[in-house]
Measured scan of single mutants.
Amino acid sequence: MEVRTIKVFTTVDNINLHTQVVDMSMTYGQQFGPTYLDGADVTKIKPHNSHEGKTFYVLPNDDTLRVEAFEYYHTTDPSFLGRYMSALNHTKKWKYPQVNGLTSIKWADNNCYLATALLTLQQIELKFNPPALQDAYYRARAGEAANFCALILAYCNKTVGELGDVRETMSYLFQHANLDSCKRVLNVVCKTCGQQQTTLKGVEAVMYMGTLSYEQFKKGVQIPCTCGKQATKYLVQQESPFVMMSAPPAQYELKHGTFTCASEYTGNYQCGHYKHITSKETLYCIDGALLTKSSEYKGPITDVFYKENSYTTTIK
């Protein structure tokens, strides 16, 4: 009895394709271990004539594949690729409408935090270190965002349907971005203890939790000093293409032309909904596939993004 075979390709990165001759009487799992086709788990399936010449994702289970996976995804987590594939199996079914010149995501599976993050990423200057993220990001900007969303979920250790947080998501993504040249110098002034300067680099240099107003941050924000008295913390120097200011959701007025974009969060910790506000020729609110415009805006804002380049204080 002759062994019926077909020729397929296996890959971990969709760049390096490895030619395989597979036995049609055995499952993919018996031949390769966990195997995925377009995100779908085909591990328990036997090869079919229609699979001839198709590319299958496999887990990096030998040295060659491990090197290829690390170079593309910059992670050695053995569960990463499987999590990416199972997320992709959902995100490829989502709709990605162009809204006001940006790629958004039609609401499904509690994905409003991903839509808000995706919209924000198209408006701030950011370059990702893992080629996987950078490639998928370019495709997302062009309207094909399924891979990018699935990668975000995998890097953030999230599953489809789980509630997510924009600030946490951005923080994970910033860790995989090139923020080497970003720098922030802060000064804390206390009447009792004097003053202390701190220099922050990388992710810490672009994120701040405690106030939404970048102007206020430049002037000074009140913080408790270690001595128990009130101290003032203010920005001395900022070198970065953008800054992200966050605070627990509270009524906040966004003035046209003073910011790049913002995240609105309605609801409580267990259950809520994100919308995205962007400042173009007027203010726009993007909620999944829905767009509304207004000249002014007041609502429960939790993150505001500002364009920056270089700032030095005039406070002496």
Rank of each mutant, 00 (worst) to 15 (best):
K233H: 10
G29S: 11
T266A: 07
C271M: 13
L151V: 03
I286Q: 09
H18L: 07
D62Q: 09
R167I: 03
Y252E: 00
K127H: 10
G220E: 03
C193F: 02
E68A: 06
R66H: 09
N157K: 12
W94P: 03
S25H: 12
A69R: 02
L212E: 00
G101D: 04
T232N: 02
T282R: 05
L254I: 02
F242K: 01
K307F: 05
Q270L: 10
G161Q: 02
K93G: 10
T258K: 05
G202I: 00
Q122W: 00
L118S: 01
T314A: 14
L126G: 07
T116P: 03
Y73K: 03
A132W: 04
I286N: 00
K93F: 09
D62L: 10
K219T: 12
D41G: 10
F242T: 02
T35Q: 08
K54M: 14
V221Q: 05
M170I: 05
G194S: 06
L118G: 00
G53N: 14
T260A: 09
N110D: 01
L17Y: 08
A117L: 09
T192F: 08
L126S: 04
N309E: 15
L102W: 15
Y155T: 01
K183Q: 12
R139E: 13
V236F: 05
N129L: 06
Q197W: 03
P47R: 04
G257E: 03
C156L: 06
Y73F: 10
K7V: 12
C285M: 00
L153P: 06
M209Q: 11
R184Q: 05
N16T: 09
S263Q: 00
A177R: 03
P34D: 10
A40K: 13
H273I: 00
T192N: 14
K46V: 12
K229T: 08
H273N: 06
C156Y: 00
V21Q: 15
S50G: 13
Q196K: 14
E308L: 09
V99E: 13
N49G: 13
T278C: 09
A140K: 03
N89H: 11
A40V: 13
C227S: 02
Q216F: 01
D135G: 08
Q20D: 08
Q196L: 08
V206Q: 03
E296V: 15
A132S: 07
S310R: 13
I6F: 14
N14M: 14
G143W: 00
P34V: 12
P130I: 04
V206C: 08
S86C: 10
D23N: 14
M26Q: 15
K106S: 13
M170A: 05
L88P: 08
C261K: 03
T159M: 04
E162H: 01
D62M: 08
N100M: 13
E264S: 07
S86Q: 15
Q123H: 06
A250F: 06
I124G: 09
E2R: 12
L254S: 02
K233L: 15
E52V: 12
A250V: 14
I301D: 01
L81P: 07
L179H: 01
T169N: 00
Q20N: 15
T278N: 03
V12H: 07
T55V: 10
P131N: 07
T35P: 01
T55C: 13
E125F: 05
K293H: 02
D287S: 00
Q175H: 14
D62Y: 09
F70L: 14
E239G: 04
Q251Y: 12
D180S: 11
Y172W: 09
V221N: 02
K280I: 08
K44Q: 15
I6T: 12
C190S: 06
L153K: 07
E68F: 06
R4A: 12
K307A: 11
L59R: 10
D23A: 10
Y72E: 07
Y297M: 05
E264Y: 07
K191G: 11
L186V: 15
F148K: 02
A145S: 06
G39V: 06
T198L: 14
V67H: 15
K46C: 14
